[in-house]
Simulated assay, not measured.
Amino acid sequence: MSGTARTAGIVAAGGRSSRMGTSKAALDWFGTPLLARVAALVGRGVDGPVVVVRAPGQLLPPLPARVEVVDDPVEGRGPLQAVAIGLAAVADRADTAFVTATDLPLLHPAYVRRVLQLLDSADDEGRADVVVPQVHGHPQPLAAAYRTSLAPLVTRLVGGGVRRPPDLFAQVRVVRPDEATLLTGTLARVDPALDSLLNVNTPDELAAVLARPAPRITVAEGPPVHARTLGEATALLAARHGPAARVVLAGAVDVTDPTTPLVPGDVLAVRVTAGPAGVVAGHSASRRT
């Protein structure tokens, strides 16, 4: 691929959700469908396209505007089928892709970036096709980074009856970072317990995660707020600064979409209209994640 390498995100939305008893994609996360939340979190961690792979006939909830949907034409081929379809969908636009499932509500963009960074650094040494974190003794093939050039191989393996990620890993170069390798820099500060990998498979597991408090979000030159989305933070800060307050997720490009999920380490900027001339004044800061 010519030009600057870009990263993509792939979210596998299929799966039987048998232990949950209902589709995980449509589960409510404080007013946002779980799939939409996970896709948005992945989108915050990559600089290229985000693709959701859905099962045949699967109905999806509303998704963020930048998210693309591609169809899995054959049911029952397992997660490698979603990996193959997702990699093929982004191969001409990204060199690497972060692949995940729908059931990681606490996924942090810093985790996404860290895993992709490990693949980039390994690629520089010519020794990795996939980075599969090994956390608490368990591999995480659906919270991992893949080179998009693997798409033809994965497609061929799935067509030949291969269903399990380990069967792919046996044929490619794999790096398996542990907790100590993952937890450096920003990720160590914002997700030290690696809650990014806390998946929800049952109603009880979902209830336990929903019961957690909202993340503490820094507000430039003001007390922090506890909020799960930019819209929730805006409502809280409007009570503090007045209805004219405009709240953005500060960074290289300010984000104003109220459905944007917030995570530990985020910094908000509050901009209010001051005086009859309508001069905009406020505070700004760099996004920390």
Rank of each mutant, 00 (worst) to 15 (best):
M1P: 13
S2H: 13
A5R: 14
R6Y: 10
T7Q: 08
A8E: 01
G9C: 02
A13S: 08
A13D: 08
T32Q: 14
L35D: 02
V38C: 05
V38P: 05
A40I: 02
V42A: 08
V42E: 03
V42G: 00
G43E: 06
P49F: 04
V52R: 01
V53H: 03
P56V: 12
G57H: 09
G57L: 12
L59M: 11
P61I: 01
A65I: 10
P73R: 09
P73H: 12
V74R: 13
G78T: 03
A82Y: 03
A97K: 00
F98K: 02
F98P: 00
A101R: 08
L106W: 03
H108L: 03
R114P: 08
V115C: 10
L116T: 07
Q117E: 15
L119Y: 02
A122H: 08
A122W: 07
A128H: 07
D129A: 07
D129T: 06
V131H: 01
V132D: 12
H138G: 06
A143M: 11
A144C: 09
A145S: 06
L150Q: 10
L150N: 06
A151C: 09
V154P: 05
L157C: 02
V158L: 12
G159L: 09
P165Q: 06
P166S: 07
D167M: 12
V174Q: 10
V175C: 10
D178S: 10
E179L: 13
E179T: 15
E179I: 07
A180W: 04
T181K: 12
L182K: 06
T184I: 08
T186P: 07
A188V: 00
R189D: 14
D191Q: 05
L198R: 14
N199S: 15
N199Y: 12
N199E: 14
V200C: 11
N201T: 14
N201D: 15
P203R: 06
A207C: 09
A207T: 06
A214P: 11
R216F: 06
E221H: 14
A227H: 04
R228V: 10
L230V: 02
L230Y: 03
A233V: 06
A235C: 05
A235N: 06
L236K: 04
L237G: 00
A238V: 11
R240D: 05
H241V: 05
A244F: 09
V247Q: 00
V248K: 04
G251D: 13
A252G: 12
T256R: 13
D257S: 03
D257T: 05
T260I: 08
P261Y: 03
P261C: 04
G265I: 05
G265D: 07
R271A: 00
R271Q: 15
T273H: 11
V279S: 05
V280N: 02
A281M: 12
R288H: 13
T289K: 03
